[in-house]
Design a protein around this nucleic acid. Structure first.
Lengths: 123, 123
DNA sequence: CACGTATATACTCCATAGAGTATATTATGA
DNA sequence: TCATAATATACTCTATGGAGTATATACGTG
């Protein structure tokens, strides 16, 4: 199983489900299995992939394995996304939203829409 | 070609390359073809997929097609990423970085590492 | 030490995505 | 109207990822 980029990893719906589960707290394989109604080998295999890709790490608790998230790959994806964020913020004002959502500064002067209406470069 | 989620779309390296290209400005098929050294049918096919998924749109200029980015799917990915962002910010201080990178607040008291050493919940 | 529980791995099968090649389509211009 | 450029599509081939099933491994307990 190659599975090079973080993108390929999160392309799989079940894997995304597992990751989303782990956001709330760490979980054992069995717990994941039950909550997502997936057969145990499936869970284990996906966890394997996730671990190899650095999305999760596991510790041993008796015969259970507890899995928890690791940040790196997420950050990679986020980093790739960054340039586009700059772009889409021109269209919708999602970034403004984003900004004063994260750190609601006192009296953010909302200078409305700076449309990046670029002139189409012919050839 | 099913290709449901935005994640599957950006799992493909060539597609990511095309998208990255389009960040700077809109491009015709031929231009993409040359810059990425990909055979033309390949480019066209990927563009098709990207368009179906709403990543790009095209307009006609003589016999050329000009492709440009569309924001929606990127935002979807970003939205999915959000919960994890909250999480990884606890580990590395990427968020702090992120924050005072985006909006450099006056005198950010960097209270070093708040390790989220949560007590393992047995069962 | 034998057994049940929890998890991992091995193996087969199948669907499908992507590459490559050839060809269709549409527009332009002589 | 014919030739050429620009792009799209059709088709075949192949690799591979994921499901499913069975089985191995490790641990804890009686």
């Amino acid at each position: 199983m190659r599975m090079e980029s973080a993108f390929e990893i999160i392309a799989e719906p079940n894997r995304r489900a597992i990751l989303s589960l782990l956001v709330s707290s760490q979980q054992s394989v069995g717990e994941i299995e039950r909550q997502l109604h997936m057969p145990q080998p499936t869970v284990s295999k996906h966890l394997r992939v996730l671990r190899d890709a650095g999305f999760v790490e596991s510790t041993v608790d008796a015969q259970r394995r507890i899995y928890r998230l690791k940040p790196q790959p997420f950050q990679d994806v986020d980093a790739w996304l960054a340039p586009f964020r700059r772009f889409w913020s021109a269209h919708v004002d999602a970034l403004e939203c984003h900004l004063d959502h994260m750190e609601r500064s006192r009296r953010t002067k909302r200078k409305t829409k700076e449309k990046t209406a670029r002139p189409k470069p012919r050839t």
